[in-house]
């Protein structure tokens, strides 16, 4: 099977490897310390997996909004995303 049509690039490859790593890490973490649900500032019950999903989805949106409104210096959006993810894991 030829994979050339998928047009892989290093940055997108690393991106997907990071996501897979995150999923594996979450699995290992769950085996070590089982997840518990809690209600955070949003008033919805979340587990760690939910918080990971919210962080990823939120990061996607932060990057999009940054590109649409500001444009260059995307790394600033990445820093905001990391801060956002930390906040989500702490308080949501």
């Amino acid at each position: 099977m030829d994979l050339a049509w998928m047009a892989w690039t290093w940055p997108t490859g690393i991106f997907f490897i990071c996501i897979v790593t995150a999923l594996v890490a979450m699995t290992v973490w769950d085996r070590a310390v089982p997840q518990t649900e809690r209600a955070g500032v949003l008033g919805i019950l979340t587990t760690r997996g939910d918080r990971l999903f919210i962080s990823l989805l939120g990061s996607g949106w932060i990057h999009l909004i940054w590109l649409g409104v500001v444009g260059p210096q995307l790394w600033i959006a990445s820093i905001i995303s990391v801060v956002f993810a930390l906040c989500v894991f702490r308080w949501v």
């Binding site: 049509w5 998928m6 047009a7 892989w8 690039t9 940055p11 997108t12 991106f15 997907f16």
Partner: peptide, 10 residues
């Protein structure tokens, strides 16, 4: 989906 992501940056 992966293919779409790859295309989107090229």
């Amino acid at each position: 989906l992966m293919t779409v992501v790859n295309y989107s940056v090229q």
